[in-house]
Design a protein around this nucleic acid. Structure first.
Length: 637
DNA sequence: GGGCCCGCAGGG
DNA sequence: CCCTGCGGGCCC
């Protein structure tokens, strides 16, 4: 069948839905491999060079990346394990199936939208819940980014959810009622604001406005809830979805699933205005729309930001259940977007709603994107509903925030609107006790945070045998098994010894401390994410090589580990069980071995070095030694 | 899990 | 000062 990849628009032929074009080192679908290669050859949109590369990758994935020697393909070697078999590309937004295979979000959605509920790679079942709400695999994003770049990525998401203000630290007088004291959170909105930007500040919050951390608000930062998001200035209102002033513009919006007309495509989304609801009876919100929305108040503020081309900060909340881009927990800062158009249409509830087209324009890559760079100007998506739109507004003047071709970044082209508010009173002055409470996560460098992204939150080591749960979090297989060992999936119940009640399903929450998602389905038969495992393994090898360059003067040329592996006929992945070695924690030793664990572990001697590594910069070397250091820690523990 | 209740901040 | 609001805890 033919397949046009929505990410890259290339057309590919792939085998039957379930065919095994490429599998973990033991392709049993040679016919399909041939078919896929023919398809690449027949593809007229590709240059010879591109075809060669794709062919190589296809073969390469089947054989375990042993063959590539070209330096240009060093990165591919690491990332090749994570290629999407549908489009044979590196996933922009990796999704992992319960069977442990990785795909582009868009390819996956296209696949499942055709009522294919089996894995394109192994025919394993895809649960409806996964098909309807695929979660981006954060560890795979990190792995791909690391494989693609050796640069330090400053914007990488902190993997830890912040919880900065503890109840006991809030001022006593803020609790005006007994109830508020009891619940703790009710008055959290009186918690301190940590950044020094005025409330009507537009655009990213920079390091200079972050007196404590001196980092600013980073793309991908996650807070426990709207209250804490507010404290970091990303989005101030703790109930309302839009922050703004009708005469002045809107500074930020929250996507949290409150309006069913919202439509999220990650780099762009359609947002619905506020209002039109019956809030009589002291309600704060109401699912049902009773009136038409108008371009007034916050809706007008958004329209001003549209006309002026201001950057609008966007946070996504876990409450947005229909979006694959929403975090599975907490509230996440996703960077700035511009509102390119706004209009009105008849919404799903048959009343008019205000509509806004947001398009991302941030200098940092989005949290779900494997890209190593931020946005470039992109052409506007085709919006079907515009045909029936009324009151259309498009920007006429040059945008205030725009892409500078010379500097290759987004910046203010006109001076940002002058703040009408003073920075005031709420600015914290006493932050004493809190500073020392700084967690190690906050002190990590960008590179270290990347490493953290490849670490299992249970054992805190870099994952050896990763399993990705339905919520998109990944763990060592052995850790997951230990964490849920001895638990059954249903509890038999009897009623006074008379008759059996219906068996009760036991909820197994994701071990990620902040994730509340039930992953019992993923635990029943955890499948190793071999793509992720291979990439992590390659990154480790690369880092080992690099650190050799630092430690030893170059002596030995052009004998990459990949080559050696090939000649020694050693399987790609060392010790897939993650057991049996003396460097294992006792917990890991307790766990059972995983399937296919017959390969021997391969030691990589320190004499191994590669010519290509001689070119590495000092920066890279030092960051790789960080990796090396962590790897050693990993081994020692 | 759904409905209810309510404090709070900010706009107007 | 009143109104609005894509929260969040609690109770059922």
């Amino acid at each position: 069948m033919e397949w046009d990849c929505p990410d890259c628009s290339s057309i590919y032929a792939v085998g039957e839905p379930s065919t095994n074009i490429v599998s973990d080192g033991q392709s049993n679908g040679s016919d399909n491999l041939i078919a896929a290669i023919r398809a690449i050859e027949a593809d007229e949109s590709l240059t010879e060079q591109q075809k060669n590369k794709k062919r190589q990758l296809l073969m390469n994935k089947g054989k375990g990346v042993a063959d590539l020697d070209d330096d240009d393909h060093m990165k591919d070697k690491a990332a090749a394990h994570l290629y999407c078999v549908i489009c044979i590309m590196l996933p922009e937004r990796p999704i992992t199936t319960p069977c442990g295979h990785n795909f582009c979000l868009k390819c996956f959605q296209k696949w499942t939208s055709r009522k294919n509920l089996t894995c394109p790679e192994c025919r394993g079942p895809i649960p409806r819940s996964v098909a309807s709400q695929p979660r981006i695999n954060a560890a795979a994003v990190v792995a791909i980014r690391m494989a693609k770049t050796s640069k330090l990525i400053s914007s990488e998401a902190l993997k830890k959810v912040h919880h900065f203000v503890h109840n006991q630290e809030r001022p006593d007088k803020a609790f005006t009622t007994e109830r508020a004291k009891k619940t703790g959170k009710a008055n959290a909105c009186s918690g301190k604001i940590f950044v020094t930007v005025p409330p009507d500040h537009f655009g990213p919050i920079l390091a200079e406005n972050d007196p404590d951390r001196k980092k600013g608000v980073l793309v991908g930062e996650v807070w426990e809830d709207r209250m804490e998001c507010r404290q970091w200035g990303a989005h101030l209102p703790h109930v309302a979805g839009i922050a703004g002033q009708s005469e002045y513009g809107a500074q930020s919006v929250a996507l949290s699933g409150g309006y069913e007309d919202d439509e999220d495509h990650g780099e762009w989304f359609l947002y619905t205005g506020s209002g039109g609801r019956d809030l009589s009876g002291n309600k704060r919100t109401n699912k049902y729309q009773a009136f038409d929305q108008k371009f007034d108040k916050m809706n007008e503020a958004l329209r001003v930001s549209c006309k002026k081309g201001y950057p609008v900060r966007v946070v996504r909340s876990h409450k947005e259940k229909r979006s694959s881009y929403a975090p599975s927990e907490g509230v996440r800062y996703d960077g700035v977007y511009r509102i390119e158009k706004c209009w009105r249409k008849i919404g799903k509830q048959e009343h008019k709603v205000c509509r806004y087209l947001f398009v991302r324009c941030d200098n940092e890559p989005a949290p779900w994107s494997s890209d190593e760079h931020g946005d470039r100007p992109r052409s506007l998506p085709v919006i079907e509903e515009l045909k029936a739109a009324t009151d259309l507004t498009e920007r006429k003047e040059d945008p205030s925030w725009d892409y500078d071709e010379e500097e290759s970044c987004w910046k203010w082209k006109r001076s940002p609107p002058l703040s009408r508010r003073t920075m005031d009173t709420r600015n914290p002055e006493d932050k004493k006790g809190k500073r020392k409470a700084k967690t190690s996560a906050e002190n990590l460098s960008g590179r270290d945070r990347l490493l953290k992204g490849l670490s299992c939150t249970i054992c805190r080591n870099i994952m050896r045998i990763p399993v990705t749960a339905a919520c998109g979090h990944s763990f060592c297989k052995s850790c997951l098994e230990v964490a849920f060992s001895g638990q059954t999936f249903v509890r038999e119940r009897t009623c006074a010894g008379r008759r059996n009640l219906r068996a009760q399903k036991i909820v197994m929450k994701c071990p990620d401390p902040q994730c509340q998602i039930d992953i019992s389905e993923s635990i029943k038969n955890p499948q190793v994410n071999r793509g992720l495992m291979g990439t992590i393994e390659s990154l480790k090898l690369e880092a080992e090589d690099d650190s050799k360059v630092v430690q030893n003067p170059p002596e030995n040329k052009a004998k990459s580990v990949y080559k050696r592996r090939k000649t020694n006929n050693v399987p790609l992945l060392s010790n897939p069980d993650g057991v049996g070695k003396d460097d294992k924690s006792s917990e890991e030793q307790k766990s059972k071995s995983v399937s296919g664990g017959t390969e021997d572990e391969m030691e990589v001697e320190s004499s191994t070095t590669s010519e290509s590594n001689l070119k590495t910069t000092a920066t890279k070397d030092s960051s790789s030694s960080t990796l090396q250091a962590q790897l050693n820690d990993d081994d020692l523990e």
